[in-house]
Amino acid sequence: MKNNKKQGVLLVNLGTPDEPTAPAVKRFLAQFLQDKRVVDANRLIWCPVLYGVILPIRSSKVAKLYKTVWTDEGSPLLVYSKKQAEKLRQLLPMPVEIGMTYGNPSLLSGVEALQAQGVEEIIVLPLYPQYSGTTTAAVSDGLTKAFKSLPVIPAIRFIRDYYSHPMYIKALADSVKRHWEKKGKSDYLLCSYHGIPKRYADNGDIYPLHCEQTTELLRQELGLDQNQIGMTYQSRFGREEWLQPYTDKTLETMPSKGIKSLDIMAPAFSVDCLETLEEVSEECKEIFLEAGGESFSYIPCLNDDEQHISLFAELVNQTK
């Protein structure tokens, strides 16, 4: 049966503070860390810790880090997201808007912008290649919450993941090849994924399986041996065990194992942001070189690369 509803696309990413200041970061982190998908601790215990300890201490520290990656146009995550939407509009015969799970522009504002253009059915594309309850499911929750304030809710088509899509794997591989052509090939290629608590995976989150599949498909596409590529998890928070191996701990041991030059990339991130530009590109570099490494090279995210946008268009066309 032909679908006669006017369709539109909502590109969704995690979000960013409005500015690199402690108050703005505090607002953003409060919304982010209150989400039960992100931190599933008992609210009676977690909220006093969050507001009494974590936010007062971390907000100013994180704000200083954001200042190191902030551009004249604003937050890298938002700047690249806008560019992605702009380029996707050129490939699709339908409206395209962006919305963030946390911060601005909100999911509600994205939905309202599409409805203002006559859209009745929204194809939601969370920009997380690998599914996780902490990210992709949080988008679904956020949309459900946003719909509560709408007189008419749109029909929804939800793209859950694309971790193994051939166009995604090829785009990653081609970005690596271009990097090698420009800067030379290192001893090892490390794929660093954002971590989640191990308990989440033990309880059924399929995220690590998706990360492993992406890495293996990338290895095959690049024609690398098992000892030339690997994967780790970064950005752990708190005291409980997270998915391993940890990126920082792995970097500390690599030089002693004969890996003196390293290429590193972050396949779970669709755009460069604080975690890639500061944590991976800068902190990880410092760890590796201090451990005896000689050459460290960060391979940027796909951002608004033409192949990346073509992948988005293909995902939408397969869904509509």
Rank of each mutant, 00 (worst) to 15 (best):
Arg219Asp: 05
Pro166Ser: 14
Pro197Tyr: 05
Lys198Gln: 08
Asp225Asn: 12
Ile159Val: 15
Gly195Val: 02
Glu221Thr: 03
Tyr162Ala: 13
Pro197Arg: 10
Ser175Ala: 14
Gly195Pro: 08
Arg199Asp: 04
Leu222Asn: 13
Asp161Thr: 13
Ile169Tyr: 12
Lys185Phe: 10
Cys191Thr: 07
Met167Leu: 15
Tyr162Val: 15
Arg199Ile: 08
His179Ile: 10
Ile159Tyr: 13
Asp202Thr: 03
Ile196Gln: 02
Tyr162Lys: 15
Ile169Glu: 06
Tyr188Gln: 11
Asp187Ser: 09
Tyr200Gln: 03
His210Ile: 01
Leu224Arg: 06
Arg219Gly: 05
Arg160Met: 03
His194Arg: 09
Cys191Ile: 05
Pro166Met: 07
Leu189Ile: 11
Glu216Phe: 12
Pro208Lys: 03
Ser164Asp: 14
Ile196Pro: 01
Pro197Phe: 07
Tyr193Arg: 04
Lys170Phe: 14
Leu172Thr: 11
Lys183Gln: 11
Asp202Ala: 05
Asp161Ser: 15
Tyr162Phe: 15
Asp161Arg: 14
Leu209Ile: 02
Gly204Ala: 08
His210Gln: 06
Leu222Met: 08
Asn203Phe: 09
Leu218Ser: 01
Lys182Thr: 10
Arg219Lys: 09
Glu216Gly: 02
Ser175Ile: 06
Thr215His: 01
Tyr163Cys: 13
Glu181His: 15
Ile206Asn: 08
His194Gly: 00
Tyr162Trp: 15
Asp205Phe: 04
Lys182Trp: 02
Asn203Met: 12
Arg219Ile: 00
Lys177Ile: 12
Gly204Trp: 07
Lys198Tyr: 07
Thr214Gln: 04
Asp187Ile: 06
Glu212Pro: 01
Gly184Gln: 08
Ser164Gln: 13
Pro208Ile: 05
Lys198Asp: 07
Val176Ala: 11
Lys170Glu: 14
Gly223Met: 09
Asp174Ile: 09
His210Gly: 08
Leu190Tyr: 04
Tyr188Glu: 07
Tyr193Thr: 00
Tyr162Met: 14
His210Leu: 05
Ser192Lys: 10
Phe158Lys: 13
Tyr207Trp: 04
Arg199Met: 10
Lys198Gly: 03
Asn203His: 11
Tyr162Asn: 02
Glu216Asn: 14
His179Leu: 10
Ile159Thr: 10
Gln220Gly: 06
Ile196Met: 02
Ser164Met: 12
Pro197Val: 00
Ser164Gly: 09
Arg160Trp: 11
Asp205Trp: 02
Ser164Ala: 15
Lys183Tyr: 14
His179Ser: 15
Tyr163Gln: 12
Ala173Glu: 05
Ser186Tyr: 03
Ile159Pro: 00
Pro166Glu: 09
Tyr200Leu: 09
His165Met: 13
Leu217Tyr: 07
Leu217Met: 13
Arg157Lys: 15
Leu222Arg: 12
Cys211His: 01
His179Lys: 07
Ala171Trp: 02
Tyr168Ala: 01
Glu212Met: 02
Cys191Tyr: 04
His194Phe: 03
Lys170Arg: 13
Leu217Gln: 07
Lys185Glu: 08
Leu189Tyr: 08
Gln220Val: 09
Asp202Phe: 05
Gly184Tyr: 09
Ile159Phe: 01
Pro197Thr: 00
Lys182Gly: 08
Val176His: 10
Leu209Lys: 06
Ser192Glu: 00
Arg160Asp: 06
Trp180Lys: 10
Ile159Ser: 08
Phe158Ser: 13
Arg157Tyr: 10
Ala173Met: 14
Leu224Tyr: 09
Lys170Tyr: 10
Ile196Leu: 13
